[in-house]
């Protein structure tokens, strides 16, 4: 049973069509990678899933997006509920300029969730991203003082109290060094048990390493979608093969 389904999805920035007839199905508790050259619409597609594109003026969407059996672009969709269900990690780590604790507690506070267990929830969330041991004595230091890797982990931890089902990650490692990248990838593997992850990446090795399924995009189209192994060894389309063998992009 697919957790995210798009049907004939088109997206326009004003007159410019950024997504063309996207038909995609994301499986639960799997890591799905979106790859493709710069400007092909990977981030745009990702931001369709939590409706972050709504913030941009002049965006128009056609087609259907269904997440957990609910029509995301239905006029009656509860945006807040949607965004609780679909968390997002950004390319550049963006913890709030508050303390570590406040960053993790943010979700609890805005959603009026029980504050009695707040310390517990913060601890549990930091443990999930393997930050607890490093930060348990630094809960009240400003988040911006952490290393970039720690900041990115914190941004993932920040999503945990809200209890999302899906994590969208837009090039989550592009600001990190190779070692930090590897460790975040390990984290993703571990998170997969409890979350569905959709990751956008420029880095084909990364896609090959972490993902179960891969979609290759080009100029707003989803050219090919399938099991990662298959995409990287026996792609069905010539354009996919040309891209992954490095002939363009």
């Amino acid at each position: 049973m697919s957790i995210i389904i798009t049907k004939d999805l088109n997206l326009y920035y004003g007159n410019f069509q950024a997504l063309r007839e996207i038909n995609l199905e994301v499986q639960p508790n799997k890591i799905t990678a979106l790859i493709g050259p710069s400007g092909c619409g990977k981030s745009t597609l990702l931001r369709v899933f939590n409706r972050m594109n709504d913030l941009i003026e002049g965006v128009r969407i056609e087609g259907k997006v269904i997440i957990e059996d609910e029509d995301v672009y239905h006029p009656k969709t509860d945006l807040i509920k949607l965004r609780k269900k679909v968390g997002m990690v950004f390319q550049r780590p963006n913890p709030f300029p508050l303390s570590v604790f406040e960053n993790v507690a943010f979700g609890l506070k805005i959603h009026g969730l029980s504050r009695e267990r707040i310390n517990e929830v913060v601890e549990e969330s930091l443990k999930r991203v393997m930050l607890w041991d490093d930060l348990k004595d630094k809960l009240h230091t400003p988040a911006l003082k952490l290393s970039l890797e720690q900041q990115q982990r914190l941004c993932i931890a920040r999503l945990m109290p809200v209890k999302p089902d899906i994590l969208l990650m837009d090039e989550p490692c592009s600001a990190l060094d190779p070692i930090a990248t590897q460790r975040i990838e390990e984290l993703m593997h571990w998170l997969k048990q409890n979350y569905t992850i959709v990751i956008v990446t420029h880095n084909m090795q990364q896609a090959a390493r972490v993902s179960d399924e891969t979609g290759f995009m080009l100029l707003g189209e989803l050219v090919e979608f399938g099991m990662t192994e298959q995409i990287f060894t026996t792609p069905a389309k010539r354009r996919t093969e040309e891209y992954i063998t490095g002939r363009f992009g």
């Binding site: 709030f96 943010f106 805005i110 920040r158």
Partner: peptide
């Protein structure tokens, strides 16, 4: 205040006033 802080908050389901 950088846009990325607002985006982070909104993506967490915060309302505009929150």
């Amino acid at each position: 205040v950088p846009k990325r802080y607002r985006e982070a908050a909104l993506a967490l389901g915060a309302t505009r006033w929150q």
